[in-house]
């Protein structure tokens, strides 16, 4: 059942990205998708170690794995793109609203269904710290990527 819900979340996040006003270029979208996916894949290795070692005590199904993979590969990176696009719109109230809403959605999603998002449950404080650090890291990388633009000499 939860895999179906995850697929719906994936559809909603992709379509949200399509309809929102964009503040990033095509190259910046691709760059952010790649770096956010890589960051998420690498940071989920330890919480999801039961999946890697095939722990017999850990009762999971193919549905758990597929929901986890969909969240890790599509939902989280695409939601990151949506929130970064909105945060960079330069309207203060939109930035504050988007930043806090994104954190709230990520936290609620990971806390309510850890089995399908982070596999093992993580405390709310640690998750909050992770997501704040994650967004700061992603925005710093984006700034670095933008700095490359005027230096171009192909």
């Amino acid at each position: 059942m939860f895999f179906a819900v995850t697929l719906c979340f994936a559809w909603i996040s992709v379509n949200l990205l399509i309809i929102i006003p964009k503040s990033l270029t095509k190259d910046e979208h691709l760059f952010l998708f790649l770096v956010s996916s890589l960051t998420i894949i690498l940071s989920l290795i330890l919480p999801a170690k039961h999946l890697y070692i095939g722990d017999p005590d850990f009762k999971d199904t193919i549905q758990t794995t597929l929901a986890f993979l969909t969240n890790r590969t599509i939902v989280f990176p695409v939601l990151t793109l949506v929130s970064v696009n909105l945060i960079l719109l330069r309207k203060f109230w939109i930035q504050v609203l988007t930043g806090s809403t994104s954190l709230f959605i990520f936290l609620i999603y990971c806390l309510l269904e850890p089995k399908y998002t982070t596999i093992s449950s993580i405390g709310a404080g640690q998750l909050l710290l992770y997501f704040v650090g994650y967004y700061v890291f992603i925005i710093l990388l984006l700034r670095g990527f933008r700095l490359l633009h005027p230096l171009e000499d192909p």
Binding site: D27, L30, F31, L34, V35, S37, L38, I41, L42, I45, A48, H50, L51, Y52, G54, D55, D60, I62, T65, L69, T73, F145, L148
Partner: peptide
């Protein structure tokens, strides 16, 4: 940079997908 990231991302993605339970 994007081309480097594409390769790194795709190898990380497939290795971290085909290596997990139940695959």
């Amino acid at each position: 940079i994007i081309m480097l990231l594409i390769s790194i991302y795709l190898s990380a993605l497939f290795d971290n997908t085909l290596c997990v339970h139940p695959f």
